[in-house]
Amino acid sequence: MSKIWIDNMDKKLPIFCPSCGSGLKVNSLYCDSCQTTISGLFELPLLLKLEQKEQDFIIDFVKCSGSLKIMAEKLKLSYPTVRNMLDDLISKIEDLQNHKQ
């Protein structure tokens, strides 16, 4: 019963090691259809290192053709509020890129 609940809940992808705080990498990938497991060492894509709401913001922004004005109308927020959200996201992406280097 508890396993079903865990399977259905929105699990958060961990990107930092809870033990030492370093950035995590992908060690294995699993195919749910044929039960094949691939092991290796893969870097997490930059976008997956962002929080879910930040990923949703990027998807919405692309769907709005990159228009902050349309985005503001859609989110029912003011233009500068949405621009500030985008600027904060740009700053976070730059930090993640610099951290990687």
Binding site: K76, L77, S78, Y79, P80, T81
Partner: peptide, 10 residues
């Protein structure tokens, strides 16, 4: 209120 209103409207 500026979280919701700004620009020409304000």
């Amino acid at each position: 209120p500026f979280k919701y209103v700004a620009g020409v409207t304000s």
